[in-house]
Lab assay of single mutants.
Amino acid sequence: MQRVNMIMAESPGLITICLLGYLLSAECTVFLDHENANKILNRPKRYNSGKLEEFVQGNLERECMEEKCSFEEAREVFENTERTTEFWKQYVDGDQCESNPCLNGGSCKDDINSYECWCPFGFEGKNCELDVTCNIKNGRCEQFCKNSADNKVVCSCTEGYRLAENQKSCEPAVPFPCGRVSVSQTSKLTRAETVFPDVDYVNSTEAETILDNITQSTQSFNDFTRVVGGEDAKPGQFPWQVVLNGKVDAFCGGSIVNEKWIVTAAHCVETGVKITVVAGEHNIEETEHTEQKRNVIRIIPHHNYNAAINKYNHDIALLELDEPLVLNSYVTPICIADKEYTNIFLKFGSGYVSGWGRVFHKGRSALVLQYLRVPLVDRATCLRSTKFTIYNNMFCAGFHEGGRDSCQGDSGGPHVTEVEGTSFLTGIISWGEECAMKGKYGIYTKVSRYVNWIKEKTKLT
C-alpha cells in the first residue's frame, strides 16, 4: 500500500490518463441519441435557420407576430419608411378606419389613436360632414345658397324668414311668412316636400332668348283662358290664391305678392273693366268669414305684352289694390325667389296649380277651390304637342294621358313649387288646347323671366 501511494504521488498524470480511459469505455446513459432527441424537440425550422439574422431580410411573422416588435424591426421587413409607417399605425392600436367614419364618399386613412378623412370636392370637416359648395344638395341650405369668396357655403332665406341657429334652416321672422300653410287642420295635408338634388348652379339658368321682337298675326285659340281631375282644397291650404270678379264672377285667378299687390295673367284683364279681388276665398257660393274683398285701382301688364300681336306672350300683369290686405292664416303671400332659384325650383319637376275653373272641358265651374299636382314636361315634348308657338318664356306641365289639367277660369292662378315646406311661385296658368285632352298640356308663363320686374313694381313704400 505504501508503494502504491508513492507511485500516485510521483505520477499524477498517469492516474488522470487511467481515469479518462475508464470513462470513455463506459456506456453513456444520461444523453439520448440524435434521433430520439429530435422526437422530443420537434420544432419547425425557421426561415433563416442556421444563418445569422443580421444578414437576412426581415420576416413579418418572425419579427412582429411571434413577439412584439419595434418600429426598427418592422422597418427591416418593409425596407421602406412609408410602408412601415402605414403598417405601424394599425399594428400599434388597430384600424381606426374600420367603422368607416368618413361621410359623403370620403376616404379614410388610419393613424395612431386617430384617423384622417380625405374629402371629395365640396366637403370638409373631420368626417367630411361639412358642405362647402352650393353645387351639392344646395349646400344643405333649406332655401338659398351662395358661395363666399373663400368658396364656403353661405345660406340665406327669402323675405319674412331668418336663418336658424344651425345656419342652414329657415324659420319665420314674421307672423305670416310667405308660402307657408298655417291653418292647423290643413298642415297635415301639406304636399310632399321637395329635397334639393345635386345641381350645376353655374349652368342652372337656361341660355334662352326671349323672342321679344317676333311679330306674329293673332292666333285663334280655343278655350285658351284655361282644375280638371283635381281635388277639393281645404280652407287655408292655398292662402296665396285669390279669385278675380268682373263682368262675371271667378273669371280668373291670381296670387298675393304682398298686402297691396296681386300677380295674374295679362290676358285676364281689360282696361276700363272694374275688377274686384277676393282673398281668403274657399267656396265661392258661401260666406265663410275668411274672405277679404278689395278693388283694383291700377293694372300693370308687362311692358312687352301686346294682345294685338299675341294674347299669351309675356302673359303676366300686376294688380294694385285700393287697401292693403290683412295677412292671416287664410290670406298669405306666395314666396318669389330670384331668377336663378325660381328656375331651379321649376326644374324640380312638379308643381301645384289651383283655381275655381271648370271641372271638365266646357263644363261647370268649381264651387270649392280645386288643386292638382302636375309634372313638368320637357321642352321637346311640349313643342311636338301643339302647332302653336311655345315661346321661351312659357313652359308645359300636365299629363300625356289627359284627364287632369287646369281649365277655363283658372287662368292667372299660381303654379307653385314647394321647397322644404315653403311654396314659391314658378308659373302662372296661361293657356292650353281644350282641357285635359290626351297628348295636350297646360301652358304656363315662366315666372323666372319676370321676377325682377315683379319685385321692382310691387315694392311697398
Rank of each mutant, 00 (worst) to 15 (best):
M6P: 06
M8R: 13
G13L: 14
I15V: 09
I17Q: 02
L19E: 02
L20N: 02
G21D: 04
L23M: 13
S25Q: 13
A26S: 12
T29Q: 09
L32W: 14
N38V: 12
K39S: 10
N42M: 10
R43I: 00
R43L: 02
R46T: 01
Y47H: 15
G50K: 06
E53W: 00
Q57E: 00
N59Y: 03
E61F: 03
E61V: 04
K68Q: 09
S70K: 05
E73K: 00
R75I: 06
R75W: 04
E82V: 06
R83E: 04
T84K: 02
Q90I: 11
V92I: 13
Q96Y: 12
S99V: 11
P101S: 05
C102G: 02
C102V: 02
S107C: 06
W118D: 10
W118R: 14
C119K: 03
F121P: 13
F121L: 13
G122C: 02
G122P: 12
F123Q: 06
N127D: 08
T133Y: 08
T133W: 06
N138H: 07
R140N: 13
E142T: 12
K146S: 08
D150Y: 08
V153F: 08
S156K: 09
K168D: 03
K168Y: 14
S169F: 06
V174S: 08
P175T: 09
P177M: 01
P177E: 01
S184V: 15
T186P: 13
S187V: 11
R191W: 09
A192F: 09
P197D: 08
Y201A: 13
D212F: 12
D212H: 11
T218S: 12
Q219H: 11
F221V: 08
N222C: 05
V227L: 12
D232P: 14
Q237S: 07
V248N: 14
C252W: 01
C252M: 01
S255D: 01
I256L: 04
N258K: 03
K260T: 01
W261M: 02
I262D: 01
T264L: 03
T264N: 01
C268S: 01
C268M: 01
T271Q: 11
V273Y: 08
I275W: 07
I275R: 01
T276A: 07
V278N: 05
G280N: 02
E281Y: 08
T287P: 09
E288V: 06
K293R: 15
R294M: 02
R294Q: 02
V296I: 06
I299S: 12
H302D: 02
H302I: 02
H303W: 07
N306W: 04
K311S: 06
Y312A: 06
N313I: 09
H314P: 02
D315R: 01
I316V: 08
N328W: 01
N328F: 00
Y330H: 10
V331I: 07
T332C: 06
P333Q: 04
E340R: 09
I344Q: 09
F345G: 01
L346R: 04
S350H: 15
S350F: 12
Y352F: 13
R358C: 05
H361T: 14
R364N: 15
S365H: 13
Q370E: 05
V377A: 06
C382W: 03
T386S: 13
T386G: 08
F388Q: 15
T389Y: 11
I390Y: 12
F395R: 02
C396M: 02
F399S: 11
F399Q: 13
F399I: 12
H400Y: 11
R404L: 15
G409P: 09
D410G: 07
P414R: 02
P414N: 15
V416K: 01
V419C: 05
S423V: 08
F424A: 02
T426Y: 00
E433C: 08
C435K: 04
G439T: 08
G439A: 05
S448P: 02
R449I: 07
R449W: 12
Y450S: 02
Y450T: 01
K455W: 05
E456H: 08
L460M: 15
